[in-house]
């Protein structure tokens, strides 16, 4: 098991005491997250959040809240199970359930927990946005008791998808009486290092590291709106200093047709976002003029300067270069 980190200092206070039906919340500490750094595609990954609870107040009707940031393709709402054990509770494992979408955090009215966490933390340090926050609370409703400290182990079991994925997963702890309030004493967040799903199907979706190219969303058809990015800040390229960058692309359809857009024009000119990052957003069906009865199987693309003499492509293992590839498919 990999120990992500340890917090030696007593951070102010999240405290949750779960004892014979009594919760004691006040100061919450996320001490560490234990996990294996890899899991095989389609299998169950287990994470353990070690919590230290130091309640400094009495409060009725409180639930422990845990949220996880995971790839959407894992469908955590269906495939994750959360349980917890309180050190004062004789080793009894108790269940947690999804927080209904119509129940907002106490201090974030109008937002679901998932929306509020996304607004506050985004997608953590991940470079792709195809992730989601999924929030749970303890089935048991209790009350806080002052100065009764205890430890809680939260176990997260989640069956991962069949895709090859690298991502920095997020783990958040809070309680219902705080509900994302102003004091971090009542909530904590931690992330794994780059967690990897191996031996899966299809291309690697790398949420951890930025690459010179980026294609979003991860799953698309010709009727989605897609964004292609050239991220020149990631590494030096022949296009360093070039202010006008163009997309060269062709798509292959399931019926065997190839449609190419190989021109330097307003249509293919990429917008400067910041630094050396350029993007082009388009509707593939229109961009490549795909007939209604054809579907795209995959796209190949690369980046060029205005006269096409300089280009950035993918470098293969044998040193040759080719276009970046992206399949067009939907999640099962």
């Amino acid at each position: 098991m990999k120990q992500l980190y340890k917090i030696k200092r007593k951070a102010g206070a999240g405290i949750l005491i779960l004892m014979a039906g009594i919760f004691l919340f006040s100061c919450v500490n996320l001490i560490e997250i234990l996990y294996n750094p890899t899991v095989k595609a389609g299998e169950v990954a287990t994470f353990t959040m070690k919590l230290r609870m130091e309640p400094h107040e009495n409060h009725p009707n409180i639930r422990l809240v845990i949220a996880i940031l995971v790839p959407k393709s894992w469908d955590a709402a269906k495939n994750a199970k959360l349980t917890y054990i309180n050190s004062l509770d004789n080793g009894i494992s108790k269940n947690m359930s999804l927080i209904p979408a119509n129940v907002p955090p106490k201090n974030q009215p109008g937002l679901s927990w998932s929306e509020a966490l996304r607004q506050k933390y985004g997608f953590g340090a991940n470079v792709l946005d195809d992730m989601e926050w999924v929030a749970y609370w303890s089935d048991e409703v209790g009350e806080t008791v002052n100065n009764l400290f205890f430890d809680v182990d939260v176990r997260v079991d989640i069956k991962v998808s069949k895709e090859n994925i690298r991502a920095k997963l997020g783990f958040f702890v809070n309680h219902s009486e705080d509900g994302l309030g102003n004091s971090v004493d009542h909530y904590k967040i931690g992330y794994t290092d780059c967690f990897e799903v191996v031996d899966g199907e299809g291309p690697l979706f790398d949420f951890c590291e930025a690459h010179i190219n980026l294609f979003t969303p991860s799953y698309v058809t010709k009727d989605d709106i897609v964004t292609v990015k050239f991220q020149g800040d990631v590494e030096p390229t022949v296009l360093d200093g070039v202010r006008d960058i163009y997309l060269n692309a062709k798509v292959y359809t399931h019926s065997g047709q190839v449609y190419t857009v190989d021109e330097r024009s307003a249509k293919t000119k990429m917008q400067l976002e910041q630094g050396k990052t350029f993007s082009l957003t388009f509707w593939p069906g229109d961009y490549f003029n795909i007939p209604a009865d054809e579907e795209i199987e995959h796209i190949e693309y690369y980046f060029t300067n205005a006269d096409g003499t300089l280009s950035v492509k993918e470098t293969n293992d044998d040193g040759s270069t080719s276009g970046f590839e992206m399949p067009f498919m939907c999640r099962e």
């Binding site: 969303p217 799953y219 698309v220 058809t221 009727d223 989605d224 709106i225 498919m329 939907c330 999640r331």
Partner: peptide, 9 residues
């Protein structure tokens, strides 16, 4: 959702 069901516009 005009394309994949996971993409909401």
């Amino acid at each position: 959702k005009p394309g994949c069901a996971n993409n909401i516009y």
